[in-house]
Amino acid sequence: MPIDRRTVLADAAIDVLAETGIRGLTHRAVDRAANLPPGTTSAYYRTRQALLTALVRRLVALDQAELQAIGEQTPVPRDAEELAAGIAVFIEHRLTGDGRRRSLARYACALESVHKPQLREILVPRENAGRQVVHDFLAEHGVTDAEDRTVTLLTCVDGLVFDRLVNGGRVSSREIRGLVAAALR
């Protein structure tokens, strides 16, 4: 099934944003990245705000699909080591390849949403199967405030990803095990 033009443009916009930052996100840059004639992006998304909104919607859709697949393919971990190993795989994905590109774009959009509340509404974290795996693990291990701890743990994971994107380096298994242990306390 062919991908529609709006999706092609939104995907190209994610690439441009990841490569050049928010200032580099222009209609012309997206046209070039999508290998489409000049003016194509502008024909579909008349304003920069419309382009940015489409980019954020596509980014959220891709992230949600990925997190849903992770959750559906991952049984609830039996112990803290299994949970830490799963989180390590997730972090590695967010720091490399296509995951890195989307992480860079996601953080740029998050910062932009501080000044554009309509973007913030789109970026609000959603329920998904991946998040549910963490919640269920914590609940099954006697954590009474599993929802709050899930949010805290995943926020810390997000912070580690952000830090390593900005400062380089890898996330150690010790760091991840420490986060999981803290969530279980």
Rank of each mutant, 00 (worst) to 15 (best):
I3R: 14
D4H: 09
D4A: 10
R6P: 00
T7C: 03
L9G: 07
A10Y: 08
D11S: 04
A12C: 00
A13L: 08
A18L: 06
E19D: 15
T20L: 08
T20V: 03
L25E: 00
L25G: 05
R28Y: 12
D31M: 03
A34N: 03
L36S: 06
P37K: 12
P37L: 11
T40G: 04
T41Q: 05
A43M: 11
A43P: 01
Y44A: 14
R46K: 14
Q49T: 06
A54W: 02
L55K: 04
L59H: 06
L62V: 15
E66P: 00
Q68V: 05
Q68L: 11
Q68Y: 09
E72V: 02
T74N: 12
R78C: 07
L83Q: 03
A84E: 08
A85K: 08
I87M: 11
I87H: 07
V89L: 14
V89C: 06
I91H: 05
I91T: 04
I91W: 04
E92W: 04
H93Q: 12
G97N: 12
D98E: 15
G99N: 10
R101W: 02
R101S: 03
A105H: 02
A110T: 01
K116D: 09
Q118A: 09
R120T: 02
I122D: 04
V124R: 14
P125E: 04
R126G: 08
A129W: 02
R131N: 12
Q132T: 11
V133Q: 13
H135M: 14
H135D: 09
D136V: 08
F137P: 00
L138F: 07
L138K: 01
E140Q: 15
H141V: 02
G142R: 11
V143G: 07
D148I: 05
R149Q: 14
V151F: 12
L153Y: 04
T155C: 05
D158T: 10
L160E: 04
V166R: 15
G168K: 04
V171H: 10
S172K: 02
S172H: 00
R174E: 08
R177N: 07
V180S: 09
A181K: 08
L184Y: 03
R185M: 13
